[in-house]
Each structure stands twice: as C-alpha cells, then as structure tokens.
Amino acid sequence: MLLNVQDLRVTYRTPGQKPVEAVRGVSFGVDTGGAFGIVGESGCGKSSLARTIIGLQPAAAGVLRFEGHDTGQMDAAAFTRYRRAVQMVFQDAAGSLNPRMTVRQTVEEVLCVHRMCPPGKITGRVSELLDRVGLPETVLDAYPRELSGGQCQRVSFARCLALEPRLIIADEPVSALDVSVQARILNLVRTLQKELDLTLILISHDLAVVRNICDHVAVMRAGVFVENGKASEVFDAPQHPYTRELLAAIPDIARSLSRNQ
C-alpha cells in the first residue's frame, strides 16, 4: 500500500469563531498503481483532504503513512522526499501557473529547485516532459495567457511529472474545461498513469469522470466518507442514499433520452 490514511481530521480555526471541522475522521488506503476517486460536492472537505495529504495544510489529528512511514515522524530530509513524491494538479490550471513565467521557465524552475537533473540536461528534460504531456515545442516560450485551458492543464501535469512523483493528486483537473478538451485531458491522465506506473487520487464532483478512470471510489459528505469501495460496486450497487442521490443527479444523455421515450 502506497498511501495509508488513518482517522485524518482537518480543522480550521479563526479567532473569535467556532472552529470548522472540514475533515472529520477519514481513513483509506491507496495501492501502488491504483486510481482512487473521491467524489462529493463543494464544501464536503475533498480539497482540504487533498491539501493535507500533500502537506499544504496541517492535520488536526490522524496518521498519514506513505510507503509505511508516518509522515508526521519524518525528519526534514525525508519529508522533502515525500513532498517530491506526492504532487498535485489543481482545478484552475491557468491560476496555478505563474503568469509572468513562460512554459519553459515554469518547468525548469522545479527541475532546478529540486536538482532533478544536471544543469546541462535541463533543456532536454523540459522537451521530454512537454512531449510526454502532448504539448508541441512551439509553446515553450509562451506565457500562460497565450495558452488554452487544456494546454495550461498539460503544463501543470508536465510540471508535476518533472519531479518523478509516485502519487499524483488531481483536484477537479477537468471541471473547468470544455467537454472535448476534458476527454483529451482524461485520456492523458490514463496514459500517464499506465506508462509511468503512477498512483492517482482523482477528486471530482463528476461521477462519470471518476467512473471512467478510477478502480476505487469514496463518496465524501460533510467531512466523512459515507461510502468507500470498488468503483464497480459503488456505482452499480450504491449503498448510501447520498451516493444514489449523486448518481441520479448526473445528467446522462442515454438515460434522459430513454426516460423521455
């Protein structure tokens, strides 16, 4: 098991106000090479959970084990290695790129900061990464504003692949994109996962997207997992009423057309 989360809690405290418990005791495990989907609506705590896993947000309680090691007990060097091994792709691709940096600078920066390859090989590695995510070399010197939403999301993927991660957390990677571009990015995620033997945590409110990619799925609501299991079981025989409600709310073409006839 690559990642094991035990009873994780995330609490936001604001002086003078009641603390908000965003994640209230979540436990799950992700196998190496697996694709784990987390679905739920805005405000259910999915992003807080993701941010806590990659260490952007401290956990209030709980244990996070990566390859068997408790991340809370890691020394600085081990934690840096962990941060490198776990990467995140955010929903707003354009917003998560620096508007004043070209594609080349964006990818180079991570390579340099983490000393991923000798300076002489950086240019070659950048081209290799762009090729990996399906971007032409012509965008190397482009700024994010000159790119489409789908291209920005590819740059985000290239940037996170630069660190040769073991686990990628993709937080709503396609919800801001057009349906045709969405298909392209989802296909990219699938190929990358297979070819680089990556482990994936995909966060989405779109169950069809999760269904398409993930082998395990957890349904999150109000900070807890209300259902967690194999994707086929959760989708075909949902146990929790909330899962059923979510499934029923998906606008599905075939289903709507057959209902109308």
Partner: peptide, 22 residues
Amino acid sequence: LLAAVPLLDAPRNAPLRDIPGT
C-alpha cells in the same frame, strides 16, 4: 461532442474520443 462525454455505464478505462485541435 457526443463521443467526448464520459458515460456512467461505459466500461472503465475505455478511452474517451476527443476532438483534436481547438
């Protein structure tokens, strides 16, 4: 456009058909 929509009852890991270009 229709082929690009992920369907609930589609088999897992079936690649989605996208529309190349923009």
